[in-house]
């Protein structure tokens, strides 16, 4: 390994994960998911009646996701409220989750997913997707599969798994690349693929393989947390 990771992790080592379901008593389903210092809480409400009525779809229920980075989650207080960034992440999270869930049995309804990042140390969208996927399962929504998500990246020329804040801001050599992906856990269907930075096409496969392995690990972790129901 040419570049040492500040956290001392191996290149393919995830941060310590923590996960639990049933953390929001008033929600129909909820989960908390942590990647090291990144903590995401997801709460699912519904299926419930959709307002405004013109958005209702008589063929199927719809999914609505709201991602919010809370003002105290970062070192410099973030101005609260929706931003360009949070709107975008809400949308890509929605697209990342939608292929897994099947709401045809609930026409004219909505399933609301609220994702709150209460502590941010990079990888918030991936932690949010992992939490949301568990929360959707916990809410008893019919699903094809769980969604698992991880950010791989590249610092200088080294591919790394689960990028943290220090690595995201890395400036030596080729700089830092952030490459968050989400997939259906049991198959190779990717539902989120973003790229911030650059990666040579011939190394793309390498990064994706690393992500697949990491996702497998996360999937087992999500399963374990869902099976520990002792509330």
């Amino acid at each position: 390994m040419k570049v040492k990771r500040a956290s001392g992790r191996a290149w393919n080592e995830l941060r310590k994960m923590k996960a639990k379901v049933g953390v929001v008593p008033n929600a129909d389903g909820s989960a908390i998911f942590e990647f090291g210092d990144t903590v995401a809480i997801a709460a699912v409400y519904g299926p419930r009646k959709l307002h405004p009525q013109h958005m209702q779809d008589p063929a199927t229920g719809i999914l609505r996701v709201n991602y919010d980075l809370l003002s105290f989650s970062v070192a410099d207080r973030k101005r609260p409220g929706p931003s360009r960034r949070s709107t975008e992440i809400s949308k890509v999270t929605e697209w990342a989750l939608a292929p897994a869930i099947d709401l045809e049995a609930f026409p004219n309804t909505v399933v609301d997913v609220q994702i709150y990042i209460i502590q941010a140390d990079a990888g918030t969208r991936t932690a949010g997707i992992n939490a949301a996927s568990m929360a959707l399962a916990h809410a008893g929504i019919p699903m094809r599969d769980l969604i698992t998500s991880v950010a791989v990246g590249k610092i200088d020329e080294q591919i790394i798994v689960d990028v943290d804040k220090v690595e995201e801001d890395y400036e030596g050599g080729e700089g830092a690349t952030d490459f968050p992906i989400a997939k259906l856990a049991r198959s190779d269907e990717y539902t989120l693929l973003q790229l911030d930075g650059k990666i040579p096409p011939e190394r793309f496969k390498e990064a994706l393989d690393a992500a697949d392995k990491a996702c497998q690990e996360i999937y087992e972790f999500q399963k374990k947390a869902l099976k520990e129901v002792g509330e």
């Binding site: 129909d28 389903g29 519904g46 399962a137 916990h138 809410a139 008893g140």
Partner: peptide, 19 residues
């Protein structure tokens, strides 16, 4: 998500939570 129950040939998943 739920409790899988195998009763004879029938397989059901009983929900544990949700609306």
């Amino acid at each position: 998500y739920g409790l899988a129950e195998i009763a004879g040939r029938m397989i059901k998943v009983i929900p544990l939570s949700g609306a």
